[in-house]
């Protein structure tokens, strides 16, 4: 019998070329931290045939080439799933004294309201606030990036004040311009590409959230800290170039 509680760590098969590790079952900064430190260790000591790893709210999924895993002599196990699982489990035992991953702080300039934030007034009205108060609340907090998903570079961020939590729009817009900053429930996010979407749009950033020409195409990654800074339309124009 175990005498002390082991941190939650379960592995299941996602496909022939991927496994998922579950670190818990709720959204929390503690789980995010565990995923980030495990991922860091994995990226430093990746297994043969490793492709990439995908952090999400409570999981880290590891993608690999089954042919290379099957051919590997350094991994032990009866099949690819066992080989990868055993490797990941041994890696977990090495990271027990959980190293802390320093999270960068990234400032996102946002021009709020007007043509850039079509729903700012509506959000203010729903909460009986002024538009300026919504901006003040949105820029006051430090947000945590939990995962990148939906479309390339789209960051799911948590940590928004309940005061401005707003349901999605009843009818999604056919297209939302790239850089749009939105609110959906307690989440806030930025649309990296022009896509359809149902979030309440309160502003727009001139930064390119996704650029395939950059070494790290997505401006944000899981674990990052984010703050928003209100800018005027002139600064927006200036930063756009």
């Amino acid at each position: 019998m175990q005498t002390r509680a082991e941190p939650y760590f379960k592995i299941y098969s996602l496909s022939e070329s991927a496994v998922t590790i579950e670190f818990g079952n709720e959204i929390s900064e503690d789980i995010l931290q565990r995923i980030s430190s495990f991922n860091k260790r994995l990226l430093e000591q990746s297994l043969p045939g490793f492709y990439s790893s995908v952090p999400a709210y409570t999981t880290l999924s590891v993608f690999f080439d089954p042919s290379q895993v099957a051919a590997s002599n350094t991994l032990t196990g009866a099949d690819c799933f066992e080989k990868v699982s055993q490797y990941l489990t041994s890696l977990k035992d090495k990271v027990q004294d959980s190293l802390t991953v320093a999270a960068p702080m990234i400032t996102i300039p946002v021009c709020y309201g007007g043509g850039f934030g079509m729903d700012l007034d509506e959000v203010a009205e729903i909460h009986q606030l002024t538009a300026q108060q919504v901006i003040d609340i949105h820029t006051k907090n430090v947000y945590k990036v939990y995962m990148i998903g939906f479309v390339p570079g789209f960051a799911y961020m948590g940590g928004m004040y309940e005061q401005i939590a707003t349901p999605r729009k009843a009818t999604p817009r056919k297209t939302i311009p790239a850089g749009s900053v939105g609110i959906a429930g307690k989440q806030t996010g930025i649309y990296p590409l022009a896509t359809p979407g149902g979030w309440q749009i309160i502003g727009r950033t001139p930064l390119k959230m996704f650029d395939a020409g950059r070494e790290q195409p997505s401006l944000l990654k899981a674990g990052d800290n984010v703050v928003f800074k209100a800018i005027g339309s002139e600064e927006f124009e200036y930063l756009s170039h």
Binding site: S52, S53, V54, P217
Partner: peptide, 10 residues
């Protein structure tokens, strides 16, 4: 494209 899944590139 298998290397950029963490940045949501399919």
């Amino acid at each position: 494209r298998n290397a950029y899944l963490s940045q949501a590139v399919p």
